[in-house]
Design a protein around this nucleic acid. Structure first.
Length: 480
RNA sequence: GCUCCCGUAGUCUAGCGGCCAAGGAUGGAAGCCUCUCGAGCUUCCGGCACGGGUUCGAAUCCCGUCGGGAGCACCA
C-alpha cells in the first residue's frame, strides 16, 4: 500500500530536537552576497528552527579570512538583505570579530591543559612534517613556555607566518589535515569591522568550538564539506572537558548544471566590470533572483525538496522555474512583447478600432487591456522568418498571409500558428539570465505597468518589471 | 595517492526486512482544453549501479567491485 499523500516532502525529524529548545546557527563568511548555492544551508536551518519553535542565530563568521578571500564590508548588509528576502527568521545576530577576547580566554584555558603548543615552523615545513607523520621540536614544549610564546604572539613579537598555536591531536592520524591542526594564527591585515585591534586570529574550528558551546547551539546543520570540523570541534571539547555538545547534521553538496557559484567570485567580477552588479542575473545571488521575480516560496520548496540527504545533487535551474511557475502563473497578467521587431504591412484590412483582450485568459473577470490596431504591425524576426509566406493568426486580431506585405485573410479564430504582435507600442527590453538583453516593443498597455509587477509576455516568458519610464519598459526575465 | 561520505527513472526525491510486480515531482511523448511555445486535465515513457552473501522473504542488512562526491590550508 502506498501513501496517498503527494504533497511537499516533509523533512525528517532532527535527532534529539525538543520543541522550543532547538538553537541553530547560520555562519556566513561576508565576502559577498549569498547565492542560490548557499540556500540549502540557510533554508534547512531556518526550516528546523521554525518547525521546533527554536532560535536561529546569524553569526557572521568574519574572522580575518585569507588573502584570496577577503571580507567585503558591504557583504554584511548584502547577506542580511538576502536572508530577509528569503523569509529567514533571525532571532539574534553575532559577529565573530566581536568575540575574539572570548576566544583568547578559552585559548589560554586550553593552553593550560598542555594539549597545545606554539609552533614556529613555516607553513611549508609544517606541511612536510605532517605528511611524514613527524612531530616538530615545538611539540614537546612545557605549558609555561607555550603560554609565554602565546603572549609573545599577542604582543607582536612574532609576525604573520612566524608562529601558530596548534592542538596536539594524533600526529599519525589517518587524515593528514587532522594532524596537529592549527588553532590560532597571526594576520596583520586590517579587518573591516575591528581594524587592527587583533593580530592573532582563531581558525574556524576553534572559534566554533567555543561559540557553539557559549551560544548554546543544539544542532549544527552544515554541508558535508565541513565534516572534518566536527572532529576538530569534538577534539577541542574533549581537551576542554566540555560535555554538552550540539548534534552534527550534514547535507550533501548542491550544484547547478553549468553554473559555478562563488561569493568572492561575484565580488571580483563585479569589480572588474564583467557583471552589472551584485544582483546581475549571472551571479545567481539572492538579490538577482529577487530582481528576476522568483518567489522566496519557490526557492524554499525547491531547496527543501532535496531533503537532508548526504547525496550530492546536481540540478537544472528548470526545476526551480517549475516551482516558481506554479506559484506565479495565476497572478501574472499577459502582455505582448515583440523582441527584434520586423514591420509588416497588411493590405485589405477591413476593420479599425482597438481590441479588448483579457489581462489573464483563465480569469476574464480580472479586466481587459486595450490594444490598438493598424495596417502596419510588428512581429518578431524569429516568427517572421519561420512563418513567412504562411497563414498565421495575429493573436486576438486577425489572420494574414505573412510577409513584409502581408495579405489580410479573415477575422475568425482559425487553428493556425498564433503569434504576438504590436502596432506602435512602447520600447521595451528584457534582461535575460545570461546577461544579454532582448530589445523590442511591447504593447501600449505595458506602459502602465509599475516596477515589481510580475507579468507574462506571451510566448516569450515570465518577467518582472524593473523600471518604467516614458521612454521604455525595462524587465528582467524569470523563465518561460 | 590517503581519509571520509554517497549510489532508487534524464534530473530530484519517498522508501528504514514482508504494506514495493517501487510512490511523487520534474522532464519527454501523445491527447483534451485554451485565440500563448503559459496554465489545467488524461494517458504513456523511464529506475532500485554490479556481483556475492544473510534471511522463509532484501531497494532496504553484510562483504566485494565499479561509479560519483567531499576533505587533505597559518580560507571559511
Amino acid at each position: 500500500m502506498r501513501k496517498p499523500e503527494a504533497g511537499p516532502a516533509e523533512l525528517p525529524p532532527l535527532a534529539g530536537a525538543e520543541e522550543g529548545k532547538v538553537v541553530v546557527r547560520l555562519a556566513p563568511y561576508p565576502s559577498g552576497p549569498l547565492h542560490i548555492g548557499n540556500a540549502r544551508a540557510f533554508l534547512l536551518n531556518d526550516e528546523y528552527a521554525k518547525r521546533y519553535r527554536g532560535k536561529l542565530i546569524l553569526a557572521f563568521d568574519d574572522t580575518i579570512g585569507s588573502e584570496e578571500k577577503p571580507i567585503l564590508p558591504e557583504a554584511y548588509d548584502q547577506v542580511r538583505e538576502g536572508l530577509e528576502w528569503a523569509g529567514i527568521t533571525i532571532h539574534d545576530v553575532v559577529y565573530k570579530s566581536d568575540r575574539i577576547p572570548l576566544h583568547y580566554e578559552w585559548g589560554e584555558t586550553l593552553i593550560g591543559t598542555g594539549r597545545t603548543f606554539v609552533c614556529e615552523c613555516t607553513a611549508e615545513r609544517l606541511q612536510a612534517l605532517r605528511k611524514e607523520m613527524k612531530a616538530c621540536e615545538h611539540r614537546s614544549q612545557e605549558v609555561d613556555e607555550t603560554l609565554a610564546m602565546w603572549r609573545a604572539m599577542l604582543d607582536g613579537q612574532y609576525h604573520e607566518g612566524e608562529a601558530v598555536l596548534r592542538l596536539k591531536t594524533d600526529i599519525a592520524h589517518p587524515n593528514p589535515a587532522f594532524r596537529d591542526r592549527v588553532l590560532f594564527r597571526i594576520a596583520e591585515r586590517e579587518h573591516p569591522r575591528v581594524g587592527t585591534k587583533y593580530r592573532v586570529w582563531p581558525l574556524l574550528e576553534f572559534s566554533w568550538a567555543v561559540d557553539d558551546h557559549l551560544l548554546g547551539i543544539t544542532h549544527v546543520i552544515r554541508g558535508k564539506d565541513l565534516v572534518i570540523e566536527d572532529m576538530m570541534e569534538s577534539a577541542i571539547w574533549d581537551a576542554l572537558g566540555i560535555a554538552r555538545r550540539p548534534q552534527f547534521v550534514h547535507f550533501g553538496m548542491l550544484r547547478f548544471k553549468d553554473l559555478e557559484l562563488s561569493k568572492s567570485g561575484i565580488r571580483r567580477e563585479v569589480e572588474e566590470g564583467r557583471l552589472s552588479g551584485y544582483d546581475d542575473p549571472r551571479t545567481w545571488s539572492l538579490q538577482s533572483l529577487r530582481r528576476r521575480g522568483l518567489r522566496p516560496a519557490a526557492l524554499r520548496a525547491f531547496v527543501l525538496s532535496f531533503g537532508l540527504s548526504l547525496t550530492d545533487v546536481e540540478v537544472p535551474a528548470e526545476s526551480l522555474y517549475a516551482e516558481n511557475r506554479r506559484l506565479v502563473d495565476k497572478d501574472a497578467n499577459r502582455y505582448f512583447f515583440v523582441p527584434d521587431p520586423v514591420a509588416v504591412e497588411i493590405s485589405g484590412l477591413p476593420v479599425t478600432g482597438p481590441l479588448k483582450v483579457p489581462l489573464h485568459p483563465d480569469f476574464p473577470g480580472r479586466g481587459e487591456r486595450t490594444i490598438p490596431i493598424a495596417a502596419k504591425v510588428h512581429v518578431t524576426r524569429e516568427d517572421f522568418e519561420k512563418l513567412r509566406g504562411m497563414d498565421v493568426r495575429l493573436k486576438d486580431f486577425c489572420n494574414v498571409r505573412l510577409d513584409h506585405k502581408a495579405q489580410f485573410l479573415s477575422m475568425e479564430n482559425r487553428d493556425i500558428p498564433k503569434i504576438q504582435w504590436v502596432t506602435h507600442g512602447v520600447n521595451a527590453h528584457v534582461v535575460m539570465p545570461d546577461g544579454s538583453e532582448a530589445r523590442g516593443m511591447a504593447e501600449p498597455a505595458a506602459a502602465a505597468l509599475k516596477a515589481d509587477d510580475f507579468i507574462q509576455f506571451e510566448r516569450f516568458g515570465f518577467s518582472r518589471i524593473d523600471r518604467v519610464s516614458k521612454a521604455e519598459v525595462r524587465a528582467y526575465f524569470a523563465h518561460r
